[in-house]
Amino acid sequence: MNTNLVHFTLNGEPVEVAIEPWTTLLDYLRYHQKLVGTKKGCDHGQCGACTVLIDGNSVNSCLCLLVSLDGAEITTIEGVATADNLSLEQQIFIEEDAYQCGFCTPGQICSTIAMRNRAEINSEEELKDWMSGNLCRCAAYKNITKAARRIYEES
């Protein structure tokens, strides 16, 4: 089997792995690393459940081939909280009840972190736009928006 050697950091730890060229970051995380906090909702970049952070940007991990990520800094939901404490985003999601079933939540939280890191949000509409890459079939949108607004304002 043809494999390629790739180096990156995953939740702060350096990783070196020989990987087949067709393996997506999502499948690598779930099947190879057993980091199942990142979810597969569609495998086609349409739902955002697989959102992770690559160099601080929110990315659909189902649309990334791992071989293309040499040198990347990858953070998944497992890398968001410290050992003892939930992150601000996680605390706010709980306080605002910004979820129901919780399946899309890791992706939603990663999107709010990327927003806090990178985005300039000037209106409610822009905020909703930013969060619209993450579908929530339970439709906890009102609370997700509330949480995202607080995360943007409080950080």
Binding site: I77, D97, G102
Partner: peptide, 22 residues
């Protein structure tokens, strides 16, 4: 009341049927 399963859901530790890692 805040959800008692909130911490699991926001950390990715809530295990759905496909999240069993055997």
């Amino acid at each position: 009341q805040k959800r008692v399963d909130g911490p699991q859901k926001v950390t990715g530790k809530a295990t759905y049927a496909a999240d069993i890692t055997s």
